[in-house]
Amino acid sequence: MMVQQTTPEAAVSGVTTAAELNVAGTRGPSFGEPIVEYLLRLGDDRLILGHRLSEWCGHGPILEEDIALANIALDLVGASSMLLGLAGELEGKDRDADALAFFREGVQYRNALIVELPRGDFGFTIMRQFLFDAYSVVTLDALASCGHAGLAAIAAKSLKEDKYHLRHSSEWVVRLGDGTEESHNRVQASLNELWRYTGELFERDTIDEAVAAVGITLDRDALHAKWESIVNDVLQRATLTIPEKTVMASGGRRGRHTEHLGHLLSVMQSVARAHPGATW
């Protein structure tokens, strides 16, 4: 990749420097403080899922749904902008949310694998959205009262929006699962494929332990249980069955992604990289 040599002024305006791009080879934690890494995980989940949803803009199955998916995408990208903005501030390398979104390589992305999977059909998009929304609501609800004031404020704000998302995706899952034979089979197949990506959402590693020092202590097992009760409730109403004995996929939090992330980034980052520092 061509690396732009930039002046300090350009770095402030959102263009990363060559030296910073050179850390691309590392897949382990490479962003300094654990809290930065932690915020990137939260921000990247929302940025990548928001981008996936935005792919539906103009292609929704009905007009109202087209508008709804675009609205939800906007909320998610907005949330990622707050989270990445805070990550950039705490990192202290003059990188703002745009620099982090558009000038990191795939291996530097910290999103869970589930959000980067291609959008599939509408049933797949909705099932993925539901599994993520339920995870997001229980997680943000816990983070809203965590001891890190900056993150707690963002979580409390996003939680209000995500409750709307979860209600929307839940209603669709029930409608499609308990709908026609065709819609039932499609969302069941989506659930079967997506289930193996849900384990990663509740993994715990050294970053989770390290952020306890700044007041973030989530009980992942308790969150997992809350998530399961929401998911079980909705899937049962939708007459859908959770696949048994699934081997869980993992790696996104450590920069080990599926092949799909690179393709997504090549689209999402293309304008910012073709015109670094451009504004309008």
């Binding site: 906007l74 909320d75 990208v77 907005g78 949330a79 902008s81």
Partner: peptide, 8 residues
């Protein structure tokens, strides 16, 4: 304070 996170 912003209304919605992503409000343009």
């Amino acid at each position: 304070t912003p209304t919605y996170s992503g409000c343009p």
